[in-house]
């Protein structure tokens, strides 16, 4: 701190150097510690609105038994997604953000008791449909999974590079629609690799079940990995 004398006041330089995300990150760190102590895997699903996050989960949840799974789903308004997911027989709760375009760690913390269960293996957090804002908010997850549907175009990774760079896995959804679209699959895969060299990519269809086995394998391997660390 350096000071200069003025008239009746001091002019001071104050060094701050504080991360703007500090409050969120502190809660996320606490969540991560708690999940790790219990061996719970947490996956944060991020995509644009309408990429098929909820449809994919509907397809996924039923097939994950005997794993104990819960879901938190964020939306700007309505309880519709949680209602859809509860039909799969797993505890699911809606986080209505009322205008906020992303989930924050504090929202996960306060809604977790709504879906928590003894010996929980896996918590899915379905983020608010948005490719920019959710990227910056750590929710205490083990991995971010980004979804991009075949109807969105090949250039999504180049337009929203931050999420493709940070996510561990990319799911190309609505793969069944490819024959009906002017969709350049090779170009999309190339664009993903340009932003995140070596990124794991799975092409899936919640409608036909294409690629779902590989997605389930990926999840089960991650759950196993997390539980072996906990044991």
């Amino acid at each position: 701190m350096c000071e200069t004398k003025g008239e009746g006041h001091h002019h001071q330089h104050v060094a701050v150097h504080r991360n703007v995300m500090e409050a969120n990150d502190a809660i996320a760190t606490g969540l991560r510690r708690g999940f790790s102590a219990r061996g719970v895997l947490v996956l944060n699903l991020i995509s644009a609105p309408g990429s098929g996050k909820t449809a994919l989960l509907e397809r996924t949840l039923a097939q994950l038994q005997p794993l104990r799974v819960s879901v938190l789903v964020g939306d700007v308004e309505t309880e519709r997604d949680a209602e859809r997911l509860r039909r799969s027989g797993v505890p699911a709760a809606q986080i209505v953000t009322a205008g906020t375009c992303h989930l924050e760690a504090g929202m996960v913390e306060s809604h977790l008791p709504d879906v928590d269960q003894p010996k929980l293996d896996l918590l899915f957090v379905e983020n608010v449909g948005n490719l920019v804002c959710p990227t910056a908010y750590d929710l205490g997850e083990d991995a971010k999974v980004v979804l991009v549907s075949t109807t969105e175009g090949e250039d999504k990774p180049l337009k929203y590079p931050a999420i493709f760079h940070r996510a561990e896995l990319a799911l190309v959804t609505k793969a069944d629609l490819v024959p009906h679209l002017d969709f350049d699959r090779e170009q999309l895969l190339e664009n993903i690799q340009a932003v995140h060299p070596g990124m794991a990519v799975l092409e899936v269809s919640a409608k036909t079940g294409q690629g779902i086995d590989l997605w389930l394998d990926w999840i089960r391997a991650k759950v196993g990995e997390k539980q072996s660390l906990h044991a």
């Binding site: 001091h10 001071q12 504080r18 910056a136």
Partner: peptide, 23 residues
């Protein structure tokens, strides 16, 4: 090489301030 780690440019930070304090 493509095997790189980001070391700067991924943070939002309040760095410093100029303030007035009373004598």
């Amino acid at each position: 090489a493509r095997d790189v780690a980001v070391v700067a440019g991924d943070r939002l930070e309040v760095q410093d301030m100029e303030v007035l304090t009373d004598d």
